[in-house]
Simulated assay, not measured.
Amino acid sequence: MKPLKVLQLLPALDSGGVERGTLEIARALVAAGHESVVLSKGGRLVAQLQAEGSRHIARDLGRKSPTTFLHYRALRKLFEAERFDIVHARSRLPAWVAWLAWRGMPADARPHFVTTVHGMHSVSRYSAIMCAGERVIAVSDTVRDYLRSHYPPTRWPHLADERITVIPRGIDPAEFPRDYPPSDEWLARFHAEFPQIGQRKVLTLPGRLTRLKGHHDFITLVARLVAEGVDVIGLVVGGEDPKRPGYAKEIRARVQAEGLAGRILFTGHRSDVREIYSVSDCVLSLSSTPESFGRTVLEPLAMGRPVVGYAHGGVAEILAELFPHGAVGKGDVAAATVRAADVIAGRTPVVEHNSRFLLANMQAQTLKLYGSLA
């Protein structure tokens, strides 16, 4: 592949799955000898991006205001001056501005335009911009099927199947290694912080404290196991949503009301989630809406830790590949309770080794797509 010059656009570089994916592709571009440029309003990940060999251009294309669209003229000048081979938009508003800039250029002078659909956006003309790429990357089969269903070629002729490429997100096995043992020092600190765990079996529900993550179902599941005499403790691993503090109070109040304060612990946001997975006997995924991918399911499974989850969206895809026994119907708390009890008792098969959802695969497939266009 000839050396490429690639621009990725997104609102900001603070945290999140889109931001993580942007840095992962930027790193792969640099390692392969290409020129990597990222445009965003900035954020705490800019320093890491630059340290890993990419260039950052500061421009706020994520502010939800009609005036943001006016940036298209300046962006067109940037495209003309920089002569990018690929422009890759990862979010709706930056995609709109980039598309307006790109559309106004002579066809023989344009960069190639790529979009990634990271989630199931509301169906609208606004969201349809993510289907406007010469190639449209879907992060899972679920997202591809969503696009096919809601943006059919009969209404959106440009979105023919050959334009959609499924490139699943992936993890680095070195970051979440199989059968990872936490250090003795970490174990001592963790048990000192949460002495209620003791020798009990550990059930973990990762994810921010938002209603969609299924915390009420988790409380019900733990309560049923305790009532059946299973000596378990539940860990809710995730920070509160600052926009919805009432929900965090609601679930904490329910835990108190049901006498489960010693059985369900709230860890808050953690940077040691890998270690928490390693001491978990079972991880739960109880989201009420389908995930576009399901990273918090893949991470523990890659480490060999069983996951029981509602089989819809990207979670269903990952469970089908790595741990089919953990899949239960959406909202079926009773079935999830039985499967969790099976896991705790050792009545389930081992988790399959992850060979599909790998970071290296995602990087290689994305760079191959860039090369096929350029």
Rank of each mutant, 00 (worst) to 15 (best):
P66G: 07
Y126E: 05
H216C: 10
T267P: 10
I86P: 02
E193L: 13
K213T: 13
L75M: 12
I25N: 05
V117W: 00
Q365F: 07
H312Y: 09
V222F: 07
K64W: 11
P66D: 08
P245T: 11
I219L: 13
I86Q: 02
H150I: 05
T165F: 13
R27F: 08
T67Y: 09
F357K: 03
S122D: 14
A341Y: 03
C282D: 01
H158D: 11
L284I: 06
G119R: 13
P173M: 10
S278I: 04
F194I: 05
Q256M: 12
T289W: 11
K64E: 15
R27I: 00
A257W: 00
T204S: 14
I344H: 11
C282F: 00
I129R: 01
M303H: 01
F190N: 09
H56Q: 10
A74M: 10
F323K: 00
S91Y: 05
T337E: 08
L75V: 11
Q256T: 13
H71W: 12
S65K: 11
L75P: 02
G207C: 05
V166M: 09
P206K: 03
A341L: 11
I57D: 05
G259N: 08
M362K: 09
F190G: 13
D231H: 12
Q199R: 15
R224A: 15
D272S: 10
V18T: 13
A336M: 06
Q256V: 11
P157L: 09
A47I: 09
A26L: 03
G346M: 10
V315S: 04
P152Q: 06
R90W: 03
L4H: 02
R347T: 10
T366V: 03
V308D: 04
G246D: 14
V37H: 06
R295C: 08
E321F: 03
V18G: 10
E35D: 13
H71I: 05
A253L: 14
E299F: 01
H325L: 09
P290F: 01
V236N: 09
S280L: 07
V279N: 07
D145M: 14
A28L: 08
H312E: 11
V222K: 02
P182M: 10
L203H: 01
L70C: 07
G294F: 00
H34P: 00
A174G: 11
V97A: 05
G207E: 01
R148D: 11
A223N: 05
V87Q: 03
T289K: 14
A89L: 06
D332Q: 06
L225P: 01
K41F: 07
R224L: 12
L4C: 09
I86H: 01
C282W: 00
G42F: 00
F194C: 08
G346N: 08
A51I: 02
T348L: 05
L212Y: 12
G53F: 06
P300Q: 03
D14I: 06
T289R: 14
V6R: 07
L45M: 14
I318S: 09
R103V: 13
R263A: 05
D217T: 07
L9T: 13
